[in-house]
Design a binder for these strands. Structure first.
Lengths: 168, 168
DNA sequence: TCAAAATCGTCAGTACACGGACTATAGTTT
DNA sequence: AAACTATAGTCCGTGTACTGACGATTTTGA
């Protein structure tokens, strides 16, 4: 007997969302509910590359300008990141880990690694590698998919439709 | 030369988040920016099972109470779903697709299918099946992981910590 | 050199996503 | 029947996540 939630098991998109939920729960339980996963990604990137601006950080962790700004605001509020204007280009905000930020990052690194192991622990070593490889393929394919195929109906136009629809 | 965003390619959790981004973009371009993916999941579930309450819907599409309530509110506002009190149990809100809701759902079903095909189109048929199988394994494993392993540090306790930390 | 174009960040608006507190209702126990 | 418990939904707060509009600044090109 097949019901709808059964059926959704064949939808990759839906499965990806559910996988992210699992990741979210596991993160809270195993890593830290204080520092979220996107926040950690930022800290982690900032640890590797000091004094980068928000745009660059966004490219590293795959977040858009607005979201980076919000996340960084939270991190600075908690004293984990320092934000200051680039003297050489007053448009940019340069970012740097504070000592506390570095400590927190390094404390969480092994926990995040452990969480990731648990996340895919139902799979064999071989399968884990396969999953990683395939996800990377899907994620990389996007770049080509976004550039090409603006297709007959442009995304931008569609968004206008939505706004119009809601206004009316 | 390995930088941080390079490194994040080995983190399943991060990859899952990125995969969801790709899914989001593809959904907007290929299915509909008016009806989001979670909204569609609800419509789809409601099409299969009429007159279910919000909790049941949430179980089918894997969303918590609060989010279901919000999504359903949007769908009712747009006239796609009808919400009314269960006469036999006044705690429940029963949900039903409107004729317009049914039409919209059936119009989007083939588009969603197409989007899902594109999403995994970089993989071979065989790989696609493998990815689906593995994601289902990970997602199902969660149920056992949540039940067991409340572990030394309980998630609930940790959340308290965060709230306390922010207050201070 | 100076106006146009590109770039970075911010802000407002929309939508998921979740936990916890609260209310209303239903079911159970004594 | 009254008290207790369980359940469904709502409301509030927090945190992603993205788009579009805007302002400040830099870069480019005539």
């Amino acid at each position: 007997m097949s019901t709808s939630h059964d059926d959704l098991r064949h939808h990759p998109g839906h499965l990806i969302r559910r996988a992210q939920q699992v990741h979210y729960w596991l993160w809270n339980a195993e890593v830290s509910p204080e520092v979220t996963s996107p926040q950690f990604a930022c800290l982690y990137a900032l640890r590797a590359e000091k004094n980068i601006d928000q745009k660059t950080l966004g490219e590293h962790v795959s977040l858009d300008r607005s979201t980076v700004a919000e996340v960084v605001t939270r991190l600075t509020t908690r004293g984990l990141v320092q934000r200051f204007r680039d003297p050489r280009d007053a448009r940019r905000n340069l970012l740097r880990l504070t000592p506390a930020g570095l400590r927190t990052t390094e404390r969480l690194i092994p926990k995040a690694a452990r969480m990731n192991r648990i996340l895919v622990s139902v799979l064999s070593e071989c399968e884990q590698a396969e999953l990683l490889r395939m996800l990377n393929l899907v994620v990389d394919a996007d770049e080509s998919l976004r550039k090409s195929a603006p297709s007959p109906t442009l995304p931008r136009e569609r968004v206008r439709e939505r706004r119009a629809l809601k206004a009316g």
